[in-house]
Computed example of a mutant assay.
Amino acid sequence: MIRQHGFALMELVVAAMLAMLLAVWGASALMNRITDARAESAAVWMLSVRQALHAYIDRYADDLRHADGPASLSHKGYADWAAPTLAQLKADQLLSPGFPELAYFGGASLRLWRHGACPGADCRVDALVHGNQPVRGKAGGIDEQTIAQWTLSSKGYGGAVSQAQPQYIRGPAFAFNNPSWDGEPLLPGIVAMAVTSEQSSQREFLRVGDTRNPDFKGGATIEGDVHAMDDLHVGRYLRLQSEHAMFAPCAQEGDVARNPDSGLLVCRDGRWHSAVRGSGGFSMNQLYGCFDSLGASTANPVTSACSCPVGASMVQISDSGPLAFPHGRTVGFLCIG
């Protein structure tokens, strides 16, 4: 009897079918992975735009609250404060100069709108960055799988306009009417990321040029100089720690210091002078000079010596006459001028 060797025809057919199924499955998995990678890349791109939008709101928060027309930020390079462009954000250094302006969904647009008591300090600003085109599959329909992957990669900030409820833009952290601004609604399948007024209010710190009163309730320690461009109101006391001698050199005209004997000093003409206008006076004793018999100084508080300031005239106003030791004769003078 002759024994057969090799594969039967049926076995070859089964093997070919299995190989084909594996190839189809592998190609499908590869395409899905490519689509997922593209969705993840697009989410990272829009997260960068959202971060720039958040920085825009933080930088111009006071201007946005009080804006009374589209051109309120034209001096900063924005034609319409409610619709900044990527090019304008790049020019304002809120996006890097080489940041690409196109993405998987045809680039992005930014929209801002306000609610509450606007314009004014209590005005609230919401913002949205959204794709310019719906996310569609090869057949032309909305690609729900890609949108789902994009949402997973958006760190909770993403959302989309769904086919079931196109009147809303929804995400895990926000839900807005579509549209919430003056203009056309977004089409189903468009993805978006939001910067809500609640998210912005979490970063309500003082900014350069801020016009709001910080209304601090505690003390504030500042190592550098404090420059007040208007009046400075002190509710209780002003304590000066800087001490200088009368007529010692000073650096900055108008500086104020103190002297334990002469009181408040003002820097004038490069020297410390008494803040009290007047030339003062003094008395001299024939035995003790600028001191009395008990050792107390009788010097002029303006000059800290038995003399008159430069330009003042010395006028004798008293003379005790000859007195026996230990008192001695004392002559008083008033400085005029």
Rank of each mutant, 00 (worst) to 15 (best):
P309G: 12
Q163W: 03
S304M: 13
K76S: 15
G311S: 02
H244M: 08
S96A: 09
I57H: 02
D143K: 06
L334V: 07
I142G: 04
Q199H: 04
P134C: 02
P326L: 05
D80M: 10
G137E: 02
V234T: 05
N178W: 09
P172S: 10
R239E: 08
V135E: 05
A305S: 13
A79E: 08
H75V: 13
P166V: 02
K76R: 13
F174A: 00
Q163N: 10
D182M: 15
M1F: 01
L238P: 08
R268T: 08
N132D: 05
L152E: 06
L240R: 06
H115R: 04
T196W: 01
S293W: 14
P179V: 04
A194N: 04
T196I: 00
R236A: 04
Q133C: 06
V302I: 13
A91C: 08
F205C: 12
R33S: 15
L53Q: 05
G270D: 01
G254R: 03
G140V: 03
E11N: 11
A67T: 12
K76V: 08
H75M: 09
P301K: 10
I222K: 12
E253H: 01
E204W: 09
D261N: 06
G224I: 15
Y104M: 13
E198P: 08
S200P: 01
S72P: 12
L152D: 10
N132W: 00
P322R: 07
L47D: 07
V234F: 05
R3F: 05
I336P: 12
V13L: 15
F325Q: 15
L94Q: 00
I190F: 01
K138F: 09
A312I: 01
H66D: 14
L128C: 03
R124S: 01
T303F: 14
S109F: 04
S242D: 12
Q4T: 09
L294S: 15
A43N: 05
A52I: 04
P249E: 05
V161S: 00
G69C: 07
Q88Y: 02
I142D: 00
A42S: 14
A164W: 00
L30K: 04
R271C: 08
S200M: 00
D215Q: 14
S180H: 11
G6D: 04
V315D: 07
N285W: 01
A61G: 09
D225H: 09
G224D: 13
E204M: 13
E101T: 05
T211P: 15
Q145M: 11
Q165F: 10
L22Y: 06
L18F: 10
Y288N: 11
L64N: 08
L112D: 05
M10E: 14
A23V: 15
N178T: 08
G106Q: 00
Q167I: 05
E184Y: 04
A67K: 07
P326V: 04
L323V: 12
Q202A: 14
R59K: 15
L102C: 02
M17K: 09
